[in-house]
Design a protein around this nucleic acid. Structure first.
Ligand SMILES: [Mn+2]
Ligand SMILES: [Mn+2]
Ligand SMILES: [Zn+2]
Ligand SMILES: [Zn+2]
Lengths: 127, 127
DNA sequence: GGAAAATTTGCGAATGACTTGCAAATTTTT
DNA sequence: AAAAATTTGCAAGTCATTCGCAAATTTTCC
C-alpha cells in the first residue's frame, strides 16, 4: 500500500462526516494531486473500505461524498444532509435488507446497490 | 405556457421510464435547444409536475433523470435501475413517510427531500 | 540487498453534463 | 395591436471528474 493510499484512507477514517475528493485534495496535510485522490478513492471503494453517494446541493453543486467503511468492510450507513450548514447526520446502519429482499423476490431482479439519503434543515439551523 | 414547455411536459408524461434532459433534447420530435430543455425541466420540477434524481451508471455516467408527476402533483415514486439494459422498474409510490417522520422526531431536523433508488440486474438480463 | 517488472503518481489537457449572457422571438398584459 | 415580460437559441463558460504519459515509487524475484 502506497503512502498516498494510506494517508487518504486515514483521512477518511478520521472524518466524522462524508467528504468529497476535492475536500481531501485541498487538505493541506495531505497535498496529493486531485487525480491521485480520485483514483485512490475509487480503489478504496472497490476494496470495500469506503462507501460513497452522489449528492446535489444548490450551494456546492453535484459531488460524490465518501465515508469510511472499515477493514472488516463494516456497516453500510445512510445520511441526512443539512442544506444550510452542509453538515451530515448519520442515520445509522442501513435497515432495508428485508424490504429489498422482498423487492428482489417480487420483481426477480438482483440488487447490487442502493442509494438513500435525506436532505433538509437541521435542528441547529432551524433555530 | 409556451410551446416548448408544453411539448416537454407531454414527452415526460408519455414516457414510461425516467428520462434525461439529453434524451429529450436529442428526441427528433422535440428539437428544442438543450438549454431550453434544461430550463424547462427545472421549471416543471419546481412546479411539482416533474420529479428527478441523479443516478450514476458506469456506461452512461452521471445524469439527472426526470419523470412525470401529474397536474395534481401526484405520487412520489422510486425506481430500480438495471445496469445492463438501463431500464427502470417502478417500485411504486414511496412508503417511507412513517420512517421519515420518526427520524424527524428523533433528530429534530426538517426533511425537505429524500432520494432512494436501487441498482442491479433485472430479471431479463439475468437470463 | 539490488535490479527488473509492475504499479502509482503528478501534471496538464480533455470530457461531458449542465449553466449562463445576450439578442431575437414568443407570450402575456393592457 | 402595442408595450412589457418572459422564453428561446446560440455560443461560450463552468466545474467535477477522467485520462495520457513520463517520472517516481512500490513490489517481485534472485
Ligand atoms: Mn451541501
Ligand atoms: Mn444506466
Ligand atoms: Zn444545519
Ligand atoms: Zn436489464
Amino acid at each position: 500500500m502506497t503512502k498516498a493510499r494510506k494517508a487518504i484512507l486515514e483521512a477518511l477514517k478520521a472524518s466524522v462526516q462524508p467528504v468529497t475528493a476535492m475536500m481531501l485534495a485541498k487538505e493541506p496535510s495531505l497535498s496529493y494531486d486531485q487525480a491521485t485522490v480520485y483514483r485512490n478513492l475509487h480503489y478504496l471503494e472497490e476494496l470495500g473500505m469506503a462507501q460513497s453517494f452522489i449528492l446535489h446541493c444548490t450551494e456546492h453543486g453535484t459531488e460524490r461524498y465518501y465515508s469510511y467503511r472499515g477493514a472488516d468492510c463494516g456497516i453500510h450507513h445512510h445520511w441526512f444532509h443539512c442544506e444550510k450548514c452542509h453538515r451530515f447526520i448519520d442515520l445509522g446502519s442501513c435497515g432495508y435488507d428485508e424490504q429489498m429482499h422482498a423487492w428482489e423476490k417480487k420483481w426477480d431482479f438482483t440488487i447490487t446497490d442502493h442509494t438513500f439519503f435525506l436532505t433538509g434543515i437541521c435542528s441547529a439551523c432551524k433555530a
